[in-house]
Simulated assay, not measured.
Amino acid sequence: MISKYSSSSKLEIDIQFASAAIKEKVSAIASQAAIKKWVKAAVGLNGLITLRFVNVAEGKKLNFSFRNKNYATNVLTFPYELSKQTLTADIIFCLPVIQKEASEQSKGMKAHLAHLIIHGCLHAQGLDHEGDKEAKKMEGKEVKLLKSLGFANPYAPI
């Protein structure tokens, strides 16, 4: 269930950084308050979401350990608990991969980061994009949420 953040929700959001340098880079893109606002827009449940921003080495290690893929990816989502009222998940963001994607796709870093945070939060709530039908549903939710936050459609042609 995905809904707008409700003030009655008790969602704890923990933001972690693999290093001071990554924290500095993320902070230059978006404040922790903005990041939490994006998460709350995508998650209308109680619980705990931990966002961790990592470097390529940690991103690659995690992707290999949990998905048997020997490269760093932009976002990894680890949902632990999901019910009608509660969500517990870790979401890992590999900052260098996200920066490279934003540059290659001619997207602003803040908009791309907001998109991937929304994307990871939707994965944590059970949405996927493996099949065309699932991808269309998930992308539609991403576009709607991002628009409500003042961001353009990330899937629109440039």
Rank of each mutant, 00 (worst) to 15 (best):
M1Q: 15
M1N: 14
I2R: 14
S3M: 09
Y5L: 08
S6I: 01
S7G: 02
L11H: 07
E12W: 08
D14G: 03
F17V: 09
F17S: 08
A18I: 03
S19L: 03
A21V: 00
I22T: 04
E24P: 07
K25W: 00
K25T: 08
V26D: 12
V26T: 06
V26H: 11
I29W: 02
S31C: 04
Q32P: 02
A33F: 08
A34S: 12
I35M: 14
I35Q: 12
I35Y: 07
K37F: 02
K37A: 08
K40N: 11
A42L: 09
G44R: 01
G44W: 10
T50L: 05
R52M: 05
V54C: 00
N55F: 00
N55L: 00
V56H: 10
K61S: 13
N63D: 01
N63E: 05
F66P: 03
F66S: 11
Y71C: 06
N74T: 11
T77H: 03
P79M: 07
Y80M: 10
Y80P: 03
E81Q: 15
E81G: 03
L82S: 11
S83E: 09
L87N: 04
T88H: 12
D90M: 05
F93Y: 10
F93G: 03
P96Q: 00
V97R: 03
K100V: 12
E101I: 04
S103T: 10
S103G: 05
Q105E: 15
K107D: 07
G108V: 03
A114S: 14
I118A: 10
H119C: 05
G120N: 00
C121M: 09
L122H: 05
L122D: 05
A124H: 08
G126L: 13
D132K: 12
E134R: 07
G140N: 14
K141M: 14
K141D: 12
G150Y: 12
F151Y: 15
A152G: 15
A152L: 11
N153D: 15
Y155E: 03
A156T: 10
